[in-house]
Design a protein around this nucleic acid. Structure first.
Length: 512
RNA sequence: GGCCCCGUAGCUCAAUUUGGCAGAGCAUCGCACUCUUAAUGCGCAGGUUGAAGGUUCAAGUCCUUCCGGGGUCACCA
């Protein structure tokens, strides 16, 4: 082995010493009769009436040596259990071995009988123990103190970079991090349950796409060698899911990964998890109601309440949410009525008059988006639905019957963050083609933003797509909200970080 | 990509303001201790201060460049 630290070398010696003593430091099988919590419950329900024998397994998380007696805690997936080892029963040789060759972080198996210590803690009185997997690298030396029943961490492993790069160590020593990812899994389970109950079909559509679309984002590109074909990692599922409405499914959804080749921030990761659903014979108002019910249902399932605390704010997710027309909300917030500014120049002047800077190239739709993002979005703490968006930033949404420049689209905001985006789907193939061309013109100036025309999607639409409502939501952001995390990296197990180590010698990090 | 902040022992942090021998707690190692729980007491050891250059008698500290992270702005149909 190369590159072992002094601390690791010491542990490697212990491992070899165990092996020489006939004890395999990495045995093939573990035996377990109880999880730590099952052992405690078994004792609690049988206390003083029976002898409870248990074999538990897990990681050694604390060791307190008191001479001829030793206390330790072992942690498994269910929780922690205190171990009690005494030289009287185990003999000095085994006590010494535990003291000398067993370390914090080792996975062990311990068999014994349950009892209660003088201080009242339910504990396993160990009869035999053995190594299940020797830990060579010491875990970060966090210590946990219980004050009035609350856990207080000391020397907590807290450096964000180290935690993200070594998530395994983060998870191993920070129980609340494990809890965050249980919450995440529960959210996804709840979303599935909600949609399944309503007859939606869960589907999987291509991640490798010959043409990308469905969102405004730069894609990652890749290549299929044998087919000599460039491919894109999807930036959205939208165009494929809507093809399925053409095919006759009346409700479809997909939960999966999108990839966007753009900036990284506290709410952006290059790959992120999206939920999209599409439902035939409804429109954006129907989707609004479904959205409110779905988020409230998930909160109830995951947290047992529809009230969440996010960044110190109490947020009530129960329906109905505040619904306000985008134009009205902007007028209320900044005093600019976008309905009175039909072109970009006029709107830019009005924004400048209130101190809002905006680039000269930005279209009217883009300016509205900037206005929304800068002034309104951060103030939308309680769940709020803004509806009726400008057409030019919504090429896949259907116009309002009485106003061709406004589309039936809404976005849901919670905690000052855009959570979801939905609209009545544009299903007129000729208008869709015109919209694509309109977008193409807008982005002619910037090749990277120019989206290719998806002819196959237009063909699908020409076969006929029922009137429908569609919806997309960032699952990572919903998790941030439910778990009260202010960075998306806290809810993604392995968030993207710039590569650091160049010791492999291929200079990978040096060519940026 | 711009701007601001940060990078010191395995972990958490001092020392940077005003350049002057790089320190502590935990973890590790040794000793003591038969109901502890941040166990305790005593002792030892542990460092290329992210990297490379520069200024200086002297650099963790000042300057330049680079690497990495955090924040923020820009970007994000």
């Amino acid at each position: 082995m190369v590159g072992l630290s002094e601390l690791e070398k010491v542990r490697l010696e212990k491992s070899e010493r165990l092996r020489k003593a006939g004890q395999e430091p990495y045995p093939h099988q573990a035996r377990r009769t109880h999880t730590t919590q099952e052992a405690i419950q078994a004792y609690e329900s049988a206390e003083e009436t029976a002898t409870i024998e248990a074999t538990v397994v897990g990681r050694l998380r604390s060791i307190r040596k008191m001479g001829k007696v030793t206390f330790a805690h072992v942690e498994d997936g269910a929780g922690k259990l205190q171990l009690f080892l005494r030289e009287n029963e185990l003999g000095s040789e085994r006590m010494d071995q535990f003291a000398d060759d067993f370390d914090l972080g080792d996975f062990i198996e311990a068999q014994g009988t349950m009892f209660r210590t003088r201080t009242g803690e339910i504990t396993l009185h160990v009869v035999t123990f053995r190594m299940l997997a020797k830990s060579l690298t010491p875990l970060p030396a966090a210590k946990e103190e219980i004050v009035d029943g609350e856990s207080v961490m000391h020397s907590e492993f807290s450096d964000p970079e180290a935690r993200y790069r070594q998530r395994y160590a983060d998870l191993a020593v920070n129980p609340e991090v494990r809890e965050t990812f249980r919450t995440r899994a529960a959210i996804i389970r709840a979303l599935r349950e909600f949609l399944d109950q309503r007859g939606f079909l869960e589907v999987e559509t291509p991640i490798l796409q010959p043409i990308y679309g469905g969102a405004a984002a730069k894609p990652f590109t890749t290549h299929h060698n044998q087919l000599h074909q460039d491919l894109f990692l999807r930036i959205s599922f939208e165009l494929y899911l809507k093809r399925l409405l053409v095919g006759g499914f009346e409700g479809v959804y997909e939960i999966g990964r999108d990839f966007r080749n753009e900036g990284v921030s506290f709410k952006h990761n290059p790959e992120f998890t999206q939920l999209e659903f599409y439902q035939a014979y409804t429109d954006y108002e129907g989707v609004m109601t479904l959205t409110e019910e779905m988020v409230a249902f998930a909160a109830e399932q995951v947290l047992g309440t529809t009230t969440v605390s996010y960044r110190g704010e109490e947020i009530d997710l129960s329906p109905p949410w505040k619904r306000i027309e985008l134009a009205q909300a902007l007028k209320d917030a900044v005093g600019i009525d976008i309905r009175n500014h039909a072109d970009a120049g006029s709107l830019r002047k009005a924004m400048a008059a209130t101190g809002q800077e905006a680039s000269a190239q930005a279209s009217r739709g883009k300016l509205i988006d900037i206005l929304l993002g800068n002034t309104l979005e951060p103030t939308l703490i309680q769940p709020t639905i803004l509806y009726d968006y400008p057409r030019e930033i919504s090429p896949l949404a259907k116009s309002k019957p009485d106003d061709p420049n406004t589309v039936e689209r809404f976005e849901g905001f919670i905690g000052g963050m855009e959570l979801c985006n939905a609209f009545t789907e544009l299903n007129d193939p000729l208008e869709q083609e015109a919209r694509f061309q309109e977008m193409g013109r807008e982005f002619d100036v910037d090749d990277e933003e120019l989206h290719p025309m998806d002819e196959d999607y237009l063909r699908a639409m020409r076969y006929g797509m029922p009137p429908s409502g569609g919806f997309g939501m960032g699952v990572d952001r919903l998790t941030m909200l439910f778990a009260d995390k202010t960075s998306i990296r806290e809810v993604i197990l392995f968030p993207h970080l710039r590569s650091k180590d160049v010791e492999a010698g291929d200079g990978e990090g040096a060519n940026e």
